[in-house]
């Protein structure tokens, strides 16, 4: 009896020391987004549109898109997203994808003019904490020639008590799977910025702050 108790106790102890599983609620709505940016296409030229599809956990998936133009006489577009600027005017380019249950799409209004114009995009927002740790501040997210820049404003502040605070760009605000790790947080108050090369303005939807050592989300911002 005594030996059995000891055996059961030790077994329970050993099993408790095994690595188990924690699950996070990471389901999101799938997103289809046009990632190339152009305002005006020069008449008589072509422009290659591109899009990305992010599934129900925010991971990029290679899928077959369908491209449409609201007016083929102004902007024609082929099945691979190659657009033809046929005559002066304005048309809407749409990409869609049907996953078998739902169709999701994204659109851009395009002008056909004398020159091709692609203005750099920008968006503003604010970081909010999703934990008990202080994290807040306004930001600008700007497209640059080399990629993007994330500019945190003067009112930014973050708790310095948190171990291993990292900032990511992600398509799932509950997970950093497939996220782009910008880096560790070194500034805990005031304005600062991150210059990120090789990342497109439309590649991600969220800024996510994570406590990396403990895999815990601390805060977020949406584009």
């Amino acid at each position: 009896m005594k030996n059995n108790f000891i055996f059961l106790f030790l077994t329970a102890l050993i099993l408790n020391g095994c690595i188990g599983d924690d699950f996070i609620l990471d389901e999101v709505h799938p997103v289809l987004t046009i990632t190339t940016n152009v305002d005006t296409i020069e008449i008589g030229t072509t422009f290659q549109f591109e899009a990305k599809y992010f599934d129900n956990v925010g991971q990029e998936r290679e899928v077959l898109f369908s491209w449409f133009s609201s007016d083929e006489s102004i902007v024609g577009i082929e099945s691979d997203g190659l657009a033809f600027a046929n005559e002066l005017g304005e048309a809407t380019i749409t990409v869609d994808y049907n996953d078998g249950n739902n169709t999701i799409s994204d659109s851009r209004t395009i002008v056909v003019g004398d020159y091709t114009v692609s203005s750099l995009q920008t968006v503003s927002g604010n970081i909010v904490t999703t934990s008990s740790y202080v994290l807040e501040g306004d930001f600008d997210f700007n497209e640059t020639e080399a990629g993007v820049e994330l500019i945190l404003k003067d009112n930014y502040q973050a708790s310095s008590s948190l171990p291993g605070l990292y900032v990511y760009l992600s398509n799932n605000k509950n997970s950093v799977a497939d996220a782009y790790e910008i880096g560790g947080v070194n500034t805990f108050s005031g304005a600062h910025e991150y210059n990120i090369t090789g990342v497109g303005f439309n590649d991600f939807q969220y800024i996510v702050y994570f406590c990396k050592p403990f895999n815990v989300k601390v805060g977020e911002g949406s584009f």
């Binding site: 924690d22 699950f23 956990v57």
Partner: peptide, 12 residues
């Protein structure tokens, strides 16, 4: 030790 962190959606 620390546990695996899995997606509840995909279990990955």
């Amino acid at each position: 030790y620390m546990n695996n962190l899995r997606s509840q959606t995909t279990t990955e």
